[in-house]
């Protein structure tokens, strides 16, 4: 399996290289350090969300509520900061919000026995509504400069969000591949009943997956609020689809039990590269959408052809 995953990751990397080569040939500014950093920075929000999404998908679930969870965290955190709460405390509250939303999703899935798709579809509306009600639909401006500096700064020329995502990705990779929890994600997603009979704490595993996903969405909201200097209750629209697309391109199976952190990360960069390259080439929005659709479908076909033989 390990070798297979690595093989699958190699395919994703190859896809990225092909796309990159095409853009590098067509758009002279594509292959410049500032532009490449730009791509990474633009991909970092989706990557952050997609990391958590990947773990949920691997454990056999899905989290459609990530965008609204991010929005709710954003407006709560921003309101706290505007009210003068110290920045670290406000950030902790934002991540706490994500964990709480994730726990609520997980409770309905694990104890209520409801389908993850439906639960998080409900959450999608619920958390959005809470964010809108809390703010009356208005964005919250006037965040402390110190907070914005966190996300707008760079370390050795690399934007902080990119570094943050790299750290989170390493953590997620370690959790997935080197801890019992990771094995439990794979087992619960691969075969929940067999996992239960083998003594895997199935409910706790689901809680962990959804709570990590909620926290990742919140971290993404911290990054975005910092970048925008504002928190909007409408933030995070369609994030779930971008994250799912990245995970799928990276080789995660929506049936659960399979997926890779590296793959997801590269999936995010592929999506970011597409958008960047096509903009540089001045390709109209509709064709950008078309290209994204084609990439996802091609990735799925390649997936099918390479893993189909495993029976």
């Amino acid at each position: 399996m390990l070798s297979l995953l690595r093989f699958r990751d190699a395919g994703t990397v190859l896809g990225l290289l092909i796309i990159g080569t095409v853009f590098a040939t067509l758009a002279p500014t594509f292959l410049t350090a500032p532009n490449l950093l730009n791509v990474l920075q633009q991909s970092s929000i989706n990557a952050c969300v997609a990391l958590g999404m990947t773990l949920v998908i691997i454990s056999g679930g899905i989290d459609l509520s990530v965008g609204p969870v991010a929005a709710l965290s954003a407006v709560l955190g921003a309101a706290l900061m505007v009210a003068g709460v110290p920045v670290p405390l406000a950030i902790a509250a934002m991540i706490g919000t994500g964990l709480a939303c994730g726990a609520f999703n997980a409770a309905l899935v694990a104890f209520g026995g409801l389908q993850p798709f439906i639960v998080t579809l409900g959450g999608l509306s619920l958390y959005r509504a809470l964010a809108l009600i809390f703010t009356g639909g208005q964005p919250i401006f006037g965040l402390p400069e110190g907070f914005r500096a966190l996300t707008n700064g760079t370390l050795a020329g690399v934007p902080n969000p990119v570094i943050l995502v790299a750290v989170l990705a390493i953590l997620a990779h370690v959790v997935l591949n080197k801890t019992p929890l990771g094995e439990y994600f794979l087992a619960v997603g691969g075969n929940p009943e067999a996992a239960r009979i083998a003594g895997v704490p199935v409910r706790a595993t689901k809680f962990a997956a959804y709570m990590i996903s909620g926290a990742c969405a919140s971290v993404a909201s911290v990054v975005l609020v910092g970048r925008l200097g504002a928190a909007e209750p409408t933030m995070g629209t369609l994030w779930e689809l971008d994250a799912i697309a990245a995970a799928a391109i990276g080789g995660a199976s929506l049936m659960g039990g399979r997926g890779s952190i590296l793959g997801t990360l590269i999936g995010c960069i592929i999506l970011g590269t597409l958008r960047n390259g096509l903009t540089l080439l001045n390709v109209q929005a509709f064709y950008q959408l078309l290209a994204t659709g084609i990439i996802i479908i091609v990735a799925m076909l390649v997936d099918r052809l390479t893993t189909g033989k495993q029976g």
């Binding site: 794979l186 691969g190 075969n191 009943e193 067999a194 009979i197 039990g257 399979r258």
Partner: peptide, 10 residues
């Protein structure tokens, strides 16, 4: 297959 093994795992 249904209750015993995690098919994709080693």
């Amino acid at each position: 297959k249904r209750d015993g093994i995690i098919r994709h795992r080693p």
